[in-house]
Design a protein around this nucleic acid. Structure first.
Lengths: 363, 363
DNA sequence: ATCACAGCTGGGAGCGCTCCCACCGTACCT
DNA sequence: AGGTACGGTGGGAGCGCTCCCAGCTGTGAT
């Protein structure tokens, strides 16, 4: 079934048949040559390269010198084939998301992942998923175990990938849970706590009628932030009023619409917690259009602390996530998964990173 | 929707339950098995897989069927080893830059590159460079020809990497030139033209004293944007006044400082072209602090058309670069380089993509 | 019928590594 | 002395593919 598709991909290569012969790679020293130079066997060099302890110091020094003299760099491809590993992990990003979260989120995650991988000699393979067909291709690719582990960013609840990965026993880590009882290892930030602290802050500043603009409630992250809102409201001895809760879709336009609705339902609101900075930006516009000053008439708080927050007027108070740290943590967890896969009974590592409220002039 | 397809993969999985020897991947069908099943030789299957024309239709069909039945997916690693290619290209990003450009630039490039690579079966390898040591490691890695080509984002004039790549005949493409006579293939956007159109726009709106905040002038991109400014000024029959030109470093704080300086040198200026949105944001703050209205007192234009531009108050007129298209173009050029490396006399492809002025309320 | 020459095909010989097993020597026992 | 043990070591046997060449078929020209 896929066969035909696979053939298609090779099109470009046909043209270049034979073209590439100019010794790419050939001519570089091999293990064997290093061995010859050091006057030892192939196996010994391999042991030295891989830091095996079962090598005498004398031999090790000799080999190391030969390596240095020849400028030997191991051929990852050969190594991967022989050892049947890939020496690579994939970072999978569903393309539509990059537009949504955009901003620093992705680059921060990537940066964190890069940092985490830096002293690993694992390669980072980036995979953008645009279409179901590409997802299918990725699934094949992963099933063929061409990577040692997978990092999944912002998976939707109905994404089949995590389960597929679990079935084929491919180590994987999610950024963000799909639901309250996520079975796959993940790293998430404390959405509930962050939201709660934001709303507590609003209430602490004397706001009486604090509304919230939520994300799409079929996303767990949106549920959590709403829950945090509720927790803060109740902690202040108030009740969650339906009219003060409107959900949107994490976009600017959604934020605008939600703000209009809030304003018409409860013109007397004096505080808004938006579950994302971009929605806050939309809300801010609508507030301005309606002559409501921020923060004088309405105090506004966002979530994510992206560049947008800093550049808004007035600059937006927002909940900062340790995004880069998330990337780094994901790598840590993945490495554990890859390494310690022996005992299947072990609890899957699941991490929740703290958030931090960044106060600015909007509240 | 994907569900059904993915289930298909269950087949092979189930068979090898318990079969799994050490490590993953073993147990998948190999070329040899496909050959056996199709009743042909290894070579023939290889030819079919790679779309060679020297196969009879009957044989081809038989092989394709066997491939489908077995769910065969070629092992890239083995293929790479045997053919001495890597089936991968590296995207190299100097880490500090991701902070500077931040915003959509980076993710747009990645998205474009991803799109360009989508129907190739090349892998995208992401490499963040943080330290000189890591650069060194990358250099080794590339010298060992473990990728088929390299995409370099925002190289500095003094970066040794492009020359290294040229020496080892590794196909490479830059995003942005290092200087006016760049020898390596590149894809750049029309910085000069973009800047010129921005300034022409300002002048066209009746602004008499248009200033500019430039980037660091040791960067070619900054030079170009300044040149575009000059061209527009002169085209309007005016002269470039030194007092109207201040250079900064592409950061917000730099933009602030530059704006202060401009305001003190020429309090009567009525237009500002900032060579980046972020600097424009800084300038905008200073203008506000000095009681200058935008656009009434001072019209402001940025460059890049990032998220910041849209979220400023008033929204910033800015020069949009086709960033995603740049990524895509880089891949196209790289593929050409990889494929047609035979004739070394051929002109190196160098592309300049047009920009577009996006008008908003700041001007 | 014979020969030449295509068009196809099978399979040997690697690619550069890891794995693993047999083997060496030395040290330490009985 | 012979036995045991064990840290070190060499090198065969692959990993799954591509490359290439020899060989095999069928066709058309002689």
């Amino acid at each position: 079934m896929w066969g035909l598709e696979l053939l298609g991909m090779d099109g470009w290569r046909r043209e270049m048949a034979g073209t590439r012969r100019h010794g790419a790679g050939r001519g570089r020293p091999t293990l064997e040559e290093v061995a010859a130079r050091a006057g030892v066997g192939r196996g010994t060099v391999s042991r030295v390269i891989n830091g095996s302890p079962r090598v005498s110091d004398r031999t090790r020094t000799a080999v190391e010198q030969a390596v240095a003299e020849l400028g030997y760099v191991p051929n990852r491809v050969a190594r991967a084939l022989a050892a049947n590993r890939a020496d690579a992990v994939a970072l999978v990003i569903p393309e539509p998301e990059t537009r949504l979260f955009a901003e620093p989120y992705f680059s921060d995650i990537i940066r964190g992942v890069g940092a985490g991988l830096a002293d690993t000699d694992l390669q980072l393979l980036l995979t953008l998923i645009r279409t179901p067909k590409e997802r299918q291709r990725l699934a094949e690719y992963l099933s063929a175990h061409r990577v040692d582990g997978v990092l999944l960013v912002s998976v939707h609840a109905d994404d089949p990938l995590p389960d597929l990965l679990e079935r084929i026993e491919m180590p994987a880590v999610l950024s963000g849970r799909r639901s309250a009882h996520e079975s796959v290892p993940y790293v998430d930030s404390d959405n509930t706590g962050g939201a709660q602290s934001a709303v507590e802050h609003l209430i602490g500043r004397g706001r009486e009628r604090v509304a919230t603009i939520t994300g799409p409630l079929d996303m767990y992250v949106a549920q959590c932030r709403l829950e945090g809102y509720g927790a803060a409201v109740r902690a202040a001895g108030r009740e969650v009023e339906e009219e003060l809760v409107v959900s949107a879709d994490f976009t600017e336009e959604g934020g605008r619409r939600a703000m209009w609705q809030l304003l018409s339902q409860r013109p007397d609101l004096d505080g808004v917690f938006a579950a994302s900075d971009v929605m806050a930006a939309g809300a801010r516009q609508v507030l301005r259009e309606n002559g409501r000053g921020v923060p004088d008439d309405v105090a506004l708080v966002g979530f994510e602390d992206s560049a947008v927050a800093r550049h808004m007027d007035p600059p937006l108070t927002s909940v900062r996530q340790a995004t880069e740290e998330m990337g780094r943590a994901m790598v840590r967890v993945l490495l554990e998964e890859i390494g310690g896969r022996s005992d299947h009974t072990a609890k899957r590592p699941q991490l929740v990173l703290p958030t931090q409220l960044v106060r600015r002039e909007s509240s």
